[in-house]
Computed example of a mutant assay.
Amino acid sequence: MKFGFIGSYGSPAQQVRLAQECEAHGWDGFFTWDGVSLGDDSFGAHPTWDPFGLLAAVAAVTERITLGAMVFALPRRRPWELAQQVLTVDHLSGGRLVLPVGTGASLDRAFTSVAGQPATLRDRARAMDEVLAWLERSWSGESFEHDGEWAGTGPFRFPVPPVHGRVPVWPVAVWDAEHPPRRSLDRALRWDGMVPQVRGGDSPEDAEPGPDQVRDLVAWIGEHQEAAGPYDVVMQGRFDADRAVAQQQARAAAEAGATWWVESWWDPTTTTPESLLERARQGPPAL
Rank of each mutant, 00 (worst) to 15 (best):
D206T: 03
P204Q: 06
P196S: 00
Q282F: 05
P12H: 00
T62N: 10
E149G: 05
A254T: 09
M128T: 09
P100S: 06
R199A: 12
R77E: 10
E145H: 07
P12I: 01
P180S: 04
Q213C: 04
G26K: 07
W139C: 08
W49N: 07
R77M: 08
P209T: 01
V98G: 08
S138F: 05
G116E: 07
G148A: 09
M128N: 02
Q117P: 08
F5G: 04
P285T: 09
A151C: 11
A19H: 05
R251S: 14
V16Q: 07
Y231F: 15
G148M: 09
V163R: 13
T272A: 08
P285D: 09
V172E: 04
S143H: 13
P159N: 12
T270P: 07
G210H: 01
V131N: 06
G10I: 09
F111G: 06
G102V: 01
R215V: 00
P155I: 15
R183G: 04
H164D: 14
E226L: 13
Q236S: 07
R190C: 04
V214Y: 02
F43T: 10
Q15M: 13
D186G: 01
E149W: 05
P75N: 04
S11T: 15
F144R: 12
E23Y: 03
V86P: 06
D41I: 04
L38M: 13
L107D: 14
D41W: 05
E130A: 03
R78V: 03
F52C: 01
E21L: 12
L121Y: 13
L54D: 04
S143W: 11
V262N: 08
L121T: 14
R279N: 10
V245Y: 08
P159M: 12
T153S: 15
S106F: 05
A252G: 05
D41Q: 01
M194C: 10
M128W: 01
V163F: 12
T88R: 05
A228H: 03
